[in-house]
Design a protein around this nucleic acid. Structure first.
Length: 484
RNA sequence: GGCGCCGUGGCCAAGUGGUAAGGCAGAGGACUGCAAAUCCUCGAUCCCCGGUUCGAAUCCGGGCGGCGCCUCCA
């Protein structure tokens, strides 16, 4: 079976066929960088990363781009409040968001274009739309897209034009449009735009780009006229993506996007997490509170992207333990005794089966929860087999098992993250070893009170001991209590 | 009002026609000095009511409940 994706455009599962085998172009709608990103945003970004990683795992050459919106109503308002230019205001947030992305093990994109870097391209795009009579200028120097000039308008969101409620938009809009449903390509400069440096020169007057123009311009120049996959949150379907299609196809006459994928919202305290509802939690806050980044990543992958994900501390707690189970199993397998004479456990057979199950799940519209189900089934059965074999197995089986784990983790990215936050420096290592030896002496003398005191002391530092007939093993675990 | 989604064991969550993956939590047991890790055992008539079918969590109709979009939003 080949990879299948649910295309919002057709509302159905379609086999994935990129326009060209040479390069798969992916454009992801990124954040507006006027504030720190919250967990809901990162549900999307982690999903984008899953797409990125899975396409590469599947062997596609990928060009993956995510934009950063650094000029719009919100950035302008926020910059004014701080008395800064939009540039000054947004730059730190771009850094903060990329830092959070790193913390969650998100692969770097091939590019993070910012709207303000593509104003020239946007102006050209507007000009093309004017030339092709898809747009018109108004007296104040703004430019609007004429949606009646684009017959396909509404095809993504499945809205009928005459059903769009018009009253509120008229009241809310202070510009002069021919038709209230038209949207701005270029907004004539206002004093508050000038204050924060959000003004550019254009043939039809000074102003700034409209709401949706940046994605079209950057997508066209950074990925190409036809993008294979365009990613975004479900809230962007209308009007953002609908307008992008109109602009882009209006300008190029070519299909803009082959596959539209939209992520459902994160639910937090029974409603969607969003800034306007004021129920957001930032990634930064969670990490500062000691949440294991690997657990957060695991949690964000634990529901299918087209389902709502109920976010909360119970889930984070469950994910923390689930991640530890993966790490423990990997360590157990890595430390197992390999011996060509060992009786076969057939772990390699299970590894092959698991790989197939994993691929089948991911091929089915990137079903990460089902894919992780296959992984955990392997862990459970693997533990049983190792128990049976007394942690001794043939080398090729150990190798097959470890390779499977690392292969699946190239997609999931959970174990590598967990390893990162569990690393221990040399001096701590020495200290731990020393304390363990001391505890061993106490145990030999059957001074269990003292032995337990040492164990507790280590536990306070996040070091957990596991006694076994082969000696005492130790590991670092993630500490801290999730909030929410 | 228009469009759409969802309702699976205590929590989270796969499965969408052949009688219920997985994670977490819980109970009992094995192992352990005690733990930890691990293993074994235990738990769901899949919101309700009808219908289609040899057979439905899965399809259809109705109901109840929750959520999203229609406006900035991942």
């Amino acid at each position: 079976m080949a990879l299948h994706l649910f295309n919002t455009l057709s509302r159905s599962l379609e086999p994935f066929r990129p326009a060209s085998p040479e390069k798969v172009g992916v454009y992801a709608c990124g954040p507006t960088i006027y504030d720190h990103a919250h967990v809901g945003n990162f549900r999307s970004f982690v999903f984008y990363d899953l797409v990125h990683r899975y396409l590469e795992w599947r062997g596609y050459p990928v060009r993956f781009v995510m934009n950063l919106t650094d000029v719009d109503d919100k950035t302008i308002r926020a910059a004014r409040e701080e008395g800064r230019t939009i540039q000054e205001h947004t730059s730190p947030f771009a850094e903060s968001i990329l830092a959070d992305a790193d913390a969650l093990g998100i692969l770097r994109a091939d590019g993070y274009p910012r709207a303000t870097e593509f104003v020239e391209e946007m102006i050209e795009l507007v000009q093309r739309l004017l030339d092709r009579s898809h747009a018109y200028r108004t007296e104040d120097g703004s430019v609007y897209f004429d949606i009646t000039s684009f017959p396909g308008y509404g095809k993504l969101s499945r809205k009928k034009l005459d059903e769009v409620r018009q009253g509120e938009r008229v009241a809310a809009d202070e510009y002069e449009k021919d038709d209230v449903r038209d949207f701005a390509l270029w907004k004539a400069a206002k004093p508050e735009d000038r204050e924060v440096g959000a003004v550019w020169e254009a043939p039809w007057g000074e102003g700034r780009p409209g709401w949706h123009l940046e994605c079209s311009a950057m997508s066209l120049s950074e990925v190409g006229e036809t993008v294979d996959i365009h990613l975004g949150g479900e809230d962007l379907i209308f009007p953002h993506h609908e307008d992008e299609i109109a602009q882009s196809e209006g300008a190029t006459g070519k299909p803009f996007v082959r596959y539209w994928l939209h992520v459902k919202h994160l639910r937090f305290a029974d409603e969607k997490m969003s800034k306007s509802l004021g129920n957001t939690v930032t990634v930064r806050e969670l990490l500062d509170d000691g949440v294991d980044p690997a657990a957060l990543r695991h949690q964000l992958l634990s529901a299918h992207y087209r389902s709502e994900l109920a976010f909360g501390s119970d889930g984070l707690e469950a994910s923390t333990r689930a991640v530890q189970r993966l790490v423990d199993f990997r360590d157990r397998l890595r430390d197992a005794e390999v011996d060509a004479q060992a009786p076969p456990l057939e772990l390699d057979v299970r590894a092959r089966e698991t790989l197939e199950e994993f691929r089948r799940a991911m091929d089915d519209d990137l079903n990460a929860p089902a894919a992780m189900g296959a992984l955990f089934r392997f862990v459970g059965e693997g533990n049983t087999l190792l128990d049976r074999g007394n942690d001794r197995l043939p080398p090729q089986e150990a190798k097959a098992g470890l390779e499977l784990l690392s292969s699946l983790d190239r997609v999931l990215g959970v174990v590598e993250l967990a390893d990162g936050s569990r690393s221990v420096d040399a001096s701590t290592r020495d200290w731990v070893e020393e304390r363990i030896q001391e505890r061993e002496r106490a145990r030999r003398e059957r001074d269990f009170q003292r032995a337990d005191a040492i164990r507790d002391e280590l536990a306070q530092q996040g070091i957990v001991l596991e006694d076994s007939p082969k000696g005492t093993r130790w590991k670092r675990v993630s500490g801290g209590q999730p909030v929410g």
